[in-house]
Amino acid sequence: MKNEIDSKFVLSVFEKMRQHGEKQEEKYVLGGLEAFTDFDGYTLFIEDALVKLRFGFHNQYDFEYAKEEHFEQFMKKMSAIDQNY
């Protein structure tokens, strides 16, 4: 399943999570989402219990989720972070 997402939006949400989120070990937690990077920082991850977003080099990304409604809820959380912080 392919979902279109703006790379600037993803990077903005990730940075806001780093700035305003609660750091728990290597993850930042904010608005019901967790954000972290791989060991070299080239791939970032934003996830909740039902959806995982992997965003990597050259703006390639991949979502993992079981139901479309989970994806929609995830995107609402990301939008809330982007708008409120």
Rank of each mutant, 00 (worst) to 15 (best):
M1W: 08
I5C: 04
D6Y: 09
S7M: 00
S7T: 07
K8M: 13
L11P: 10
S12G: 08
V13D: 12
V13A: 14
E15Y: 11
E15F: 14
M17F: 09
M17G: 03
R18C: 09
R18N: 14
R18F: 02
Q19T: 11
H20L: 12
H20Y: 15
E22Q: 13
K23F: 11
K23R: 15
Q24R: 13
Q24D: 11
E26D: 14
E26I: 02
K27E: 08
Y28I: 10
V29P: 14
V29G: 11
L30A: 06
G31V: 08
G31K: 06
L33D: 01
L33N: 02
A35F: 06
A35W: 02
D38G: 05
D40N: 10
D40L: 02
Y42C: 12
Y42V: 05
T43Y: 05
T43P: 02
L44K: 00
I46P: 02
E47D: 10
A49D: 15
A49V: 13
A49G: 15
V51T: 05
V51H: 03
K52G: 12
R54T: 00
F57L: 09
H58W: 12
N59L: 00
Q60P: 01
Y61R: 07
Y61Q: 01
D62R: 06
F63N: 00
F63L: 00
E64R: 13
A66D: 15
E68F: 07
E69A: 11
F71T: 08
E72P: 02
F74G: 06
M75T: 08
M75S: 05
K76G: 03
K77G: 03
K77I: 02
M78V: 03
M78G: 00
S79P: 03
I81G: 07
I81C: 11
I81V: 09
Q83S: 13
Q83C: 14
Q83M: 06
Q83N: 11
Q83W: 04
N84E: 04
Y85D: 09
